[in-house]
Design a protein around this nucleic acid. Structure first.
Length: 424
RNA sequence: AGAGAGGUGGCCGAGUGGUCGAAGGCGCUACCUUGGAAAGGUAGUAUACUGGUAACGGUAUCGAGGGUUCGAAUCCCUUCCUCUCUACCA
């Protein structure tokens, strides 16, 4: 959520930013915000004045009661009646205005970073880096869902029986490979200075709101209605919310966290060939990295995260590319996002396996995550996160890119984690 | 899940209707004292919004939300959390 003050002081920047996102009605909504805000502040001021008057009278009344001057006290009491009525009306008005302001602000996405190009869809994303060689597979190369069946390592039908579509069962070496990946990713992250956390997989509405899942993407999360809790769509939510409401010291920066969690997404409206196999699931595993940074350093930190993720993919020897998302494809809460895509050789298409974003103060504002700056004033921190990495598509990539006529080779770095080097 | 107790500032802890944003202590900061340090002394030490160039004001906040009252940390209701005992359980 943008800060009203920021909008007030940087109207043109906000408008230009929203235009890059193709955010419709930007002008109208911003005007609306500014008007509501002005109105709110004016109301606040009048209300404060009336409350100040009431407080003064109350003190006087108290004094009269003490000294036994009941008549004087009662006289003043009558005066408070009118003030009370006024303050009631004003505070109702204030509440209404605050609520509408809040509703308006919730609708406004983050202002994109200056390097973000305008664009409407993923077509307009910029390819800024590629690495790895795409293997030349024979005529008989299979997509991962066929390989999964052939080697009996992932069972989609079994998951359908237990739960429904999009909840696969990993079996034998498939399960072990998945577990190996989790450990490998976590170890790489820890090595890079991230601290490991195991966090809850259900979160309350406050947490989901703070990181931006609510109210914008309510329908995308599974909701446990009995207890009003949400299954996490990403580890970002519980990990970032560990710091909700905190006032930290400047010397605490940077805060680097990592954690493995399953992720649950309803993916309402997704169907077709592109969601086949491991491409899009309702439940999948992911290792996440989260950073809390000083505003001055957050873009350095983002670059660092990108380099870190590159390093992992390089070690896995998988062909990938990095995209800088255009305005239209950048998520609601992000200022700048780099997507990592892995080439799925047998499917002949790129699969998103990671996304690293700087949210600047957008989440921190909702989180009320601040730090004391050098002047001793509190200032919003910057939050960032990225996947390192999303498991199923990496698994799909390994199966497809490492397939041979005899079976599936295991990437060298994973062999110690798997305890085998081949799946037959 | 049942019964009881409780949630106050960075921490401990007082406060059961009036000048309480909140005693006292600890911690922290600055200054004084000292050759230096400790001890001692003095002052300061929450957050948000808001008015003002500033000095300095105003309002709100004693888990959260609502209510009673001229006035609520204090009384009432709802809710969340913690602790103890019982029950249950990995």
């Amino acid at each position: 959520m943008l800060q009203v003050q920021f909008i007030r002081e940087n109207k043109e920047i906000v408008l230009n930013g929203l235009t890059k996102r193709n955010f419709v009605n930007a002008k109208t909504i911003i005007e609306n915000v500014l008007n509501t805000d002005e109105n709110r502040r004016a109301t606040q001021t009048s209300l404060d004045a009336i409350l100040a008057e009431s407080n003064k009278l109350s003190k006087e009344i108290g004094g009269f009661f003490k000294s036994g001057e009941l008549q004087k006290a009662n006289l003043l009491k009558e005066k408070t009646v009118q003030l009370k009525e006024q303050s009631k009306q004003l505070s109702e008005k204030l509440n209404e205005l605050s609520e509408s302001l809040q509703t308006l602000l919730y609708q406004i996405p983050n202002v994109p970073h200056k390097s973000v190009k305008a664009g409407t869809s993923e077509e307009d994303n910029e390819n800024i880096f590629s690495e790895g060689t795409i293997p030349v597979l024979g005529e008989n190369a299979l997509p991962h869902w066929e390989l999964a069946k052939k080697y009996d390592i992932i069972d989609f039908e079994l998951g359908t029986k237990i739960t429904g579509a999009g909840f696969p069962v990993y079996k034998g070496k498939g399960a072990k490979l998945q577990r190996a990946l989790i450990n490998y990713f976590l170890d790489k992250n820890i090595e890079a200075g991230y601290k490991e956390f195991q966090v809850p997989h259900l979160v309350n509405a406050e947490s989901a709101t703070a990181t931006g899942q609510l109210p914008d993407k309510e329908g995308q999360m599974y909701h446990a209605s009995e207890d009003d809790l949400y299954l996490i769509p990403t580890g970002e939510v519980p990990i970032t919310n560990m710091f909700r409401g905190d006032l930290i010291q400047e010397s605490d920066f940077p805060i680097c966290c990592t954690g493995y969690t399953p992720c649950f997404r309803r993916e309402a409206g997704s169907y077709g060939a592109h969601v086949r196999g491991l491409n899009r699931l309702h439940q999948f595993d992911k290792v996440e990295i989260v950073r809390i940074e000083h505003p001055k350093n957050s873009y350095n930190a983002l670059d660092g995260m990108v380099e870190h993720i590159k390093g992992i993919l390089r070690e896995l020897k998988l062909p990938y590319r990095v995209l800088r998302l255009c305005g239209g494809d950048t998520g609601f809460t992000a200022a700048l996002t780099f997507d990592f895509e892995l080439f799925s050789t047998a499917q002949g298409r790129w699969l998103e396996i990671s996304s690293a974003s700087n949210f600047e103060t957008f989440q921190a504002n909702r989180l009320k995550l601040r730090f004391k700056n050098k002047e001793g004033k509190s200032e919003l921190a910057h939050t960032l996160n990225g996947s390192s990495l999303a498991l199923p598509r990496v698994l799909a990539g390994i199966l497809e890119n490492y397939q041979t006529a005899e079976g599936i080779k295991i990437p060298e770095v994973l062999v110690p984690y798997c305890g085998f080097d081949f799946i037959t």
